[in-house]
Design a binder for these strands. Sequence first.
DNA 1: CGTACGGTTGACTAGCCTCAACAAAAGTGG
DNA 2: CCACTTTTGTTGAGGCTAGTCAACCGTACG
Lengths: 255, 255
Amino acid sequence: MSARSPLLDADAPSRPGGHHGRRQPHPGCEGCLTRSLAVCAALPAADTAEMEQAAGELRIQAGATLAREGAVRRDVYTVTRGMLRRVRLLPDGRRLVAGFLMAGDFIGFSGASHYRHTFEAVTDCALCVFSLQDMQQLCRSHPELEAGMLRQACAELDSTRSSLMTLARLTPVERLAGFLLDMAARQQRLGACADRVDLPMTRNDIADHLGLTIETVSRCFTRLKQDGMIEFDAPRLIALVQPAQLQTLAGSQAE
Amino acid sequence: MSARSPLLDADAPSRPGGHHGRRQPHPGCEGCLTRSLAVCAALPAADTAEMEQAAGELRIQAGATLAREGAVRRDVYTVTRGMLRRVRLLPDGRRLVAGFLMAGDFIGFSGASHYRHTFEAVTDCALCVFSLQDMQQLCRSHPELEAGMLRQACAELDSTRSSLMTLARLTPVERLAGFLLDMAARQQRLGACADRVDLPMTRNDIADHLGLTIETVSRCFTRLKQDGMIEFDAPRLIALVQPAQLQTLAGSQAE
DNA sequence: CGTACGGTTGACTAGCCTCAACAAAAGTGG
DNA sequence: CCACTTTTGTTGAGGCTAGTCAACCGTACG
């Protein structure tokens, strides 16, 4: 529902529809924390040289726009640090957050010539950049990479289809329970502890992700707390006290 | 919301979690109507022999189950005729129709070892069957095929993500308008006329696809008719009188 | 002819959204 | 360091929309 924050419009993009920050030479895959998670994991260690050459490193600040809906889709990215949101707006201001992107996630599974979403940094972020052209070239010369991309695209399809059930048929509390578990699982995969969730995004982002209003999201948090399923260390740091009960609430919907 | 029809449970699957009907030898790609639409289009005509050998033909009747959620995912399919629905159920009976599959559509973009949806024939259907194994082998030996699969998987991701906006933020009439346009566009791609939509599925299917109830769907149909945007040739055959207005209603959400 | 099924319509209800006030935290500038 | 503003999150009151329940209609089919 929320209109775009004036803050985001203030710092206009340095390239038409492109990202802020400057593209730096890539520091190398060797020490990359996401090497085992991202699409590049499909390439054997011996073959990273060619990819490193095509890659650039990009750092953007919280609140900055990586790419704008409607802009020409020149680049694809792998998130290596931080969190972004995938946003789409309707002409009248209704907003959807189609997903949150974390370390290891790939931005670029699309057949469209223009971005179909705006990508905004929720926290400070670091990304691996490839020109779409280079990435396509890499895929042609390395079928294992293409296979890995297909595998990850399919995984993303599975997860997006699960979101359809969430939005179509789950109640607000069920949606929030599922969201907390989903975020917890993803953070755990990145090495965080299992029973605590960090939510860097605002309630507004959560609401627009779950198809609700901020008030409803807030009330659902309160209800989960009253029912003893969660506890607040801070509004954005939540302890999952009864993950099993949350799981039941969420309808046992995996990921 | 509807529980599964008793009719569908009556005719139990002939294979555990598998499809009805019998797998026949493949008649050949040459005369295939969907040759230019499906994933196989990525293969040059000279290379179809190997694929034909791996393929089988399958025909199933309206109401039959092609594959059941939770069953081992042994086969993948390309729809060549008819329509199927992709269904998921919650333990308490809430139902989601995650999509309708038509000629040219591929069933098998998933990373899961088990089907995550039940596939049911809405009309009599014909499909191309491949064992998952054979298809993976084909992909390895024909990188163009894998590239084509990736392209189509990305297209499906784009379209699924658009559905998120529909379910999260559009009003019932808007959802229905978008649905009608979507179906019309897909049928047009298959050679049907542009201003008429055939809806072989029930109102129940539409409701569970749009996250609504049958009553709401019915009322929205009536409203669109009263507003002069559509006309009923029959409950399941609808004329799009004002496609432009429908487009506006649907929020200009492409596909 | 009777039944079953799919679809439409009406009356009522409940749950989520809207509007509004308030509280807490974080930034800003003197 | 403190007053002030801005942003974010919570809570309450009330209205509206879509869901629920029920009746009814038309068609298909035995």
